[in-house]
Design a binder for these strands. Sequence first.
DNA 1: CATTTTTTTTGGATCGATTCAAATTTCTGC
DNA 2: GCAGAAATTTGAATCGATCCAAAAAAAATG
Lengths: 360, 360
Amino acid sequence: MMASPIEGQARPIRLADIAKAAGVSHGTASNVFSRPEVVRAEVRERVKAVAEAMGYAGPDPKGRLLRAGKVNAIGVGTTEPLSYFFEDPFARVMMAGISEACDATGAGIALVSAANQEKLAWNIQSALVDGFILFCIEGGSRLVELTRERRLPFVALELGFHDETISAIGVDNIAGGRLAARHLAELGHRRFAVLSLTLGEDRTGFVTPEMVRSAVYTGTRDRLAGYFEELSRFGVDTTKIPIFETENEEKSTRAGLEAIFAGGELPTAILAMSDRMAMIAIEWLTARGLKVPQDVSVVGFDGVPDGALCDPPLTTIAQPITEIGRRAARMILDHDGTVRRETMGVELVVRASTGPAPKG
Amino acid sequence: MMASPIEGQARPIRLADIAKAAGVSHGTASNVFSRPEVVRAEVRERVKAVAEAMGYAGPDPKGRLLRAGKVNAIGVGTTEPLSYFFEDPFARVMMAGISEACDATGAGIALVSAANQEKLAWNIQSALVDGFILFCIEGGSRLVELTRERRLPFVALELGFHDETISAIGVDNIAGGRLAARHLAELGHRRFAVLSLTLGEDRTGFVTPEMVRSAVYTGTRDRLAGYFEELSRFGVDTTKIPIFETENEEKSTRAGLEAIFAGGELPTAILAMSDRMAMIAIEWLTARGLKVPQDVSVVGFDGVPDGALCDPPLTTIAQPITEIGRRAARMILDHDGTVRRETMGVELVVRASTGPAPKG
DNA sequence: CATTTTTTTTGGATCGATTCAAATTTCTGC
DNA sequence: GCAGAAATTTGAATCGATCCAAAAAAAATG
């Protein structure tokens, strides 16, 4: 047996090397780093000196990890690309909440995502985490299935569909819908249009009542139900309200607005199921010469910070996003094996995108 | 020896359990999952069936990791709290670039930070990553030292000081300074004030020429040098230009503006070393009844997206932030053991916060 | 100084996989 | 039916630490 031929690319120094060089057992060497108080001061210093001299990088977490069994990190997963976490306003606030809880306990955050489906599966399988928080905005069911296979605790956020077997944190969508609708109705509005999130399949366009009934996404359905329940109470014929399903992005939302304002009785108020759509709507209306809120009122949903900054500032149904993030993280961190479901309240934040219905 | 007394809380199933149950060696069992093509179809299906029946979660990455030696994830570290990554505009754009490179190679991202100094050390020591990207905005030297001990590749970003031994990506601060100064000088401005990033110690307030000379932070010093070189060329007496050192946040920046506009010859142009300060300045000036750019011009530094959205849109020196992020990630991902230093170019982005110097 | 108590140190077992040379089985061709 | 080639399977070794019961050394007690 000979030493590695090239000095330069020697393999990294292991704890066992230090132990041998210092003339102590590997148990003692380990203690020097992980429980220094149990080893005699003299020995401790000697070992440390040897480690220093040999350029030891400290106990390798890879080794420790296997023994410890716990990673002390939580994975946050989504089907969107990784940049989603840094670009999407909703995700960012959520992450701030998650970060807060992680900072407090010293846990790390690993971002899990992937460019394509195969990689996603692999990344979930190989993520070094103790549990997952899932952003189920899109492709939620696949994300959930993949994660379930890891048999680690996980919490679903913004889970569109209903599944009692998984932990989830959501908001009271019906109440949110009602709040938004009542606000507009009380301002005198009677002609509405809805900019809806997806109901099921990947499609965009106007939605029929049957489609609503058979909707897979209960979140969307509930918001709609909330809108309509409340509007009915004000005597509005909800069957006449146009509902346009978008993909919650610019193109399909604009298409929806075009369609809604194409003719017939124009709405004086728009119920948007996300702040994103609401803000796109405001921009579109303004560009079209319609004043918000004088001509058309717009109310959003989510309560992202950007809403306060747009012009006019957005009236919206605010979710306690940061708190949801905090709780989700805590659920993973102090997981006790039970399935937990929490429904958070929402609140109406009145800013300047809504006003009295125009006369006549 | 007896089976675990309580059925419910059995320890997780290991690959070895599957192997035994299926009557194959653990080598074969391992192959079923990691190299299915080498095992006979019949055996493969049998093992898979057993695994399924026993509720095996798939090969545990903790085990694989130790053997493989490579984590396939990069750590992004800072001394700021974790939420910094999701809230700071500059960091966000940088992260988007890093994400892009990681997405492309399937690498994961682990966020490393800490509430306090001890935890930071621990978190860096125990991060499961193949290398680090360091945001050295503040407390950079400590962050670098801590990371150096891990003996893993790392790249420093926004490294304030000069150290040839570490890989870093930065921008040409002198050129940036000159670009900003020339732009203003060409618009006819002759009376300036500088809102400066920190030069060394943690202090705020006006800065003397000696302090500039002995500055630790070469980034700050270089921007300043760029400003002054160019202004001298236009015949401006740079010794009279007030330089106010802030902590790049609201309070100290406002204090700086108060001090600068407290009396004497008021500046017609402000050179801010960050977009953050520039935007705070615009707000402050506007609130004070001074019109930007009619009364006072403001030019920032960084080129964060928010700058385009503020009112008036900010003229600034744009760094290729996303590209820096991409390169940093790539440096870690295809690390070859060499120390790499890159200096990226910057460009002047003229928007509406600068205009001709007011007459008289 | 012998005994008991306390503090340190030791070294084997373990965490959960992957790897690879060698052994075994199956397949080919004649 | 058999030799040789090809395809599978085996099982010991390894990755880098931590844990812990038992042994050894040091300190305290009578």
